[in-house]
């Protein structure tokens, strides 16, 4: 389903672990049952502004491509844009920031999801134990905080509940700063969806980071799927 066309620079590395664009990644995880924030794709700055008006402000605009794995680190994400003019300007800047090795790129527009808590969930294939599902405290500090826990896929709903119980930051999952407790059943279904994705041997890893907790519901506002080989 993804069109993987690595360019000259970093070609070998990209060939071995290609990633799907955010749009493709979102489609894949949404089909598996993960709740993702609404979104639209656009090729031009004008289209991006129109899409934003349809989705409703404020929005985030990101530059996407199968060869772009880490948008935030490269400054390819613009958040909290409140009108069409600022979306168009941001979109034009992002398109201009594309590098030749990024290959085909487009824009992804998504309404801002509000919430004080960010979680991470994912799928990884461990050398020793094979497919593992992870959940943890997410966002840009995920690695630094390191409050994450793993289970082997496939995992049962009971395994998923115990996985969530393993996190040290349990207070973050309860009622928090005027927001209701995290809906654990939604989180369980996300983890089970990741477990289902593990059955596809072409999927090497999945990142849902962050899952923003809005009104108790964890919603994926970014997705990154790493695939074993180009899929058609």
């Amino acid at each position: 389903m993804a069109h993987v066309e690595p360019n000259r620079s970093g070609l070998l590395e990209k060939l071995f672990v290609p990633t799907l664009s955010e749009a493709h990644s979102r489609t894949l995880v949404a089909d598996a049952g993960v709740l993702v924030s609404s979104w639209a794709s656009a090729e031009t700055a004008q289209q991006a502004a129109q899409a934003a008006q349809t989705l409703g402000f404020p929005v985030a605009v990101k530059l996407c491509g199968d060869a772009i794995a880490h948008k935030t680190e490269r400054g390819l994400v613009r958040l909290k844009l409140t009108d069409a003019a600022s979306v168009e300007a941001a979109a034009a800047e992002l398109l201009a920031a594309a590098l030749p090795e990024d290959g085909p790129v487009n824009l992804l527009i998504s309404p801002m999801v509000t919430g004080n808590r960010e979680l991470i969930a994912g799928l990884v294939r461990d050398d020793q134990f094979g497919a593992c599902v992870m959940v943890g405290v997410g966002g840009v500090l995920a690695e630094a905080i390191g409050d994450v826990a793993f289970r082997l896929a496939p995992l049962s709903p009971l395994d998923a509940q115990e996985l969530i119980d393993d996190l040290a930051s349990q207070t973050l999952l309860g009622a928090f700063r005027g927001e209701p407790a995290v809906d654990r059943s939604t989180l369980v279904s996300i983890l089970c969806a990741l477990s289902t994705l593990a059955q596809d041997p072409n999927i090497v890893s999945v990142d849902l980071n962050p899952l923003i907790v809005t009104d108790g519901q964890p919603v994926a506002v970014d997705a990154l799927v790493e695939v074993a080989e180009a899929q058609s």
Partner: peptide
């Protein structure tokens, strides 16, 4: 690793 999940594993 290419993914956050991978680097945390």
């Amino acid at each position: 690793a290419a993914s956050h999940t991978g680097s945390l594993a």
